[in-house]
């Protein structure tokens, strides 16, 4: 029974990884508190874009969240961390790295380098602004537009 479960979980995680490689679909955030709090300054990024250890570190350093204070009350913070960790992506690093910026990940850079013109980037202002170009990003769809 445990073996079957493990296999099922592995299959789901693996499927998620394939989707991420193609940069087409990543299940969007569905958890109410995460959706509300994490979309205040940017869209709520899918949990699958970072491995679990990243979300743990991210959610314990909200007083300096990429240069801003994004503090939350402890109850909400813990609830969001639990959701993000439970829905995190596979850890692809070989060195227990803890990536925090999705836009620094190799696949992200690979997908965006030479794809995005200066003009497009100026309009978006930041790599954080997925939906400036990916109009359906909030639905988890990151196809090239």
């Amino acid at each position: 029974m445990i073996k079957t479960l493990t296999f099922a979980v592995a299959a789901v995680v693996f499927a998620g990884a394939i989707n991420a490689d193609e940069m087409e679909y990543m299940p969007p955030v569905t958890h109410a508190a995460t959706l509300e709090e994490c979309s205040a300054c940017h869209m709520a990024y899918p949990a699958g874009f970072l491995p679990p250890q990243s979300w743990k570190v991210m959610m314990t350093g909200l007083d300096d969240h990429f240069g801003e204070n994004a503090g939350l009350d402890e109850e909400t913070r813990a609830e969001i961390e639990a959701y993000l960790v439970a829905n995190a992506g596979r850890d692809r690093s070989r060195s227990n790295a803890v990536p925090l910026r999705i836009s620094d990940l190799p696949w992200f850079r690979h997908e965006h380098e030479e794809e995005v013109s200066n003009r497009q980037f100026e309009k978006a202002k930041s790599w954080a602004n997925c939906n400036a170009c990916h109009k359906q990003a909030e639905q988890g769809i990151f196809e090239d537009d």
């Binding site: 240069g67 202002k125 930041s126």
Partner: peptide
């Protein structure tokens, strides 16, 4: 404060009746 946000107007417009923009572009 934090070096990236020296003023309220870093993100909120100096004209509070106008839209502002977060450093993320939102």
């Amino acid at each position: 404060g934090k070096p990236d946000t020296p003023s309220c107007t870093t993100c909120h417009s100096p004209d509070p009746k106008a839209m502002g923009q977060a450093r993320t572009g939102k």
